[in-house]
């Protein structure tokens, strides 16, 4: 044994109690750092994403409400030397919105879009998905791909395409003339109808995909067993497939409702809300108040707050309807 080793041993032996204490401290510190490390890891991982999300979505939604009850009509700096005199003035902007006749036109059009989404897109999507899933046809993948195609194309392209297609100098009058040679193009009597048609055309594919994915989850042996017991195709649909899909139908309805209120791009490009504001919807109405002519930001934010409230009311109603009529899951 060398001197060095001896010295080390002595040292270790001599400090045996002290070493124990140190060890204990080390263990405790390790536990602490483990907790601390978890905390540190948690916040480093969460914060970048959450801060951006908060700044871009959560905060503006709350801020929109504050602006809607303020006197911030014309814009300008909130802070600094050139700051405007910012005050909360109450719900006057809301009263103004409710007095505006175009608000009701927009509201009505929005509800038409909600209706065509819930009672047009969803049933059509379901029927198509059902046909494709029951294995009655070949080329399932092809049909699925083609019917979903309109959903991936830029709304801008679709909007301008149909604007030209339905225009009096476009192709629509020619198509009508195939069936009715005496047809003369006039000013579009019901501009909202063409918008609704395009919306139906664009989004049915989404619900087709949702329903197909969920139909595939249903155990086909249950349906086969029911068939052997003498159930018709319709009975299998009514008593096995539809109840199994009730949750998906509610989800789709919620998607359709929140999607309906999003219908800005298409209408902005296709009609701009015109002619004479007849195809306006709440989002276009709000856009006009904020960015067309003299801005009124408080008013625009009042409209957007009303939109949030309507959207959550409708979603709440859908959930209620699910509890009352479905809920067999």
């Amino acid at each position: 044994m060398s001197d060095k080793e001896k010295a080390q041993r002595a040292g270790v032996n001599g400090e045996i109690t002290l070493g124990d204490v140190k060890n204990e401290k080390k263990i405790r510190r390790k536990e602490l750092t483990s907790k601390g490390e978890e905390k540190l890891a948690y916040w480093t991982l969460v914060l970048p994403g959450f801060l951006i999300y908060f700044a871009v979505m959560a905060f503006p939604t709350l801020f929109s409400f504050i602006l809607s009850i303020s006197n911030y009509y014309r814009g300008g700096q909130l802070f600094g030397p050139k700051a405007v005199d910012f005050k909360l003035v109450g719900f006057g902007s809301y009263a103004k919105v409710f007095q505006d006749e175009y608000f009701y036109v927009a509201l009505k059009n929005n509800f038409k879009i909600v209706l065509i989404s819930v009672f047009g897109q969803i049933p059509l999507g379901f029927i198509l998905a059902y046909i494709l899933n029951r294995g009655l046809v070949k080329f399932t993948g092809f049909f699925q791909t083609v019917i979903y195609l309109p959903c991936v194309i830029s709304t801008v392209v679709i909007g301008i395409l149909f604007k030209s297609f339905f225009s009096p100098t476009g192709a629509w009058p020619e198509v009508i003339r195939i069936f009715n040679p005496a047809y003369q193009p006039t000013v579009n009597a019901n501009p909202m109808a063409s918008v609704l048609l395009v919306i139906l055309w664009m989004y049915t594919g989404t619900y087709l995909l949702i329903f197909i994915a969920n139909l595939q989850k249903i155990d086909s042996s249950i349906i086969e067993a029911a068939k052997i017991d003498g159930a018709s195709e319709f009975q299998a649909l009514r008593y096995i497939i539809l109840p199994a899909l009730s949750g998906v139908i509610v989800t789709s309805a919620i998607l359709a409702i929140s999607g309906s209120l999003k219908s800005f791009d298409l209408i902005y490009v296709m009609t701009g809300g015109g002619p004479a504001n007849r195809t306006t919807v709440l989002s276009i109405f709000m856009y006009d108040k904020a960015f067309k002519g003299a801005p009124n930001y408080a008013l625009a934010n009042a409209i957007s707050t009303i939109m949030v409230i309507i959207s959550f009311l409708l979603i709440g109603l859908t959930k209620l309807a699910e509890k009352k009529f479905g809920g067999k899951e």
């Binding site: 700044a55 959560a58 814009g75 209120l261 904020a290 960015f291 625009a300 949030v308 959207s311």
Partner: peptide
């Protein structure tokens, strides 16, 4: 929870505040 609420948010509602915030 706040992220999942964001799933249902309508984008149009943040259009005006975002524009103002970007401006400031």
């Amino acid at each position: 929870g706040s992220f999942t609420i964001g799933l249902l948010m309508t984008l149009q509602c943040i259009m005006v505040p975002l524009f103002l915030m970007a401006n400031w």
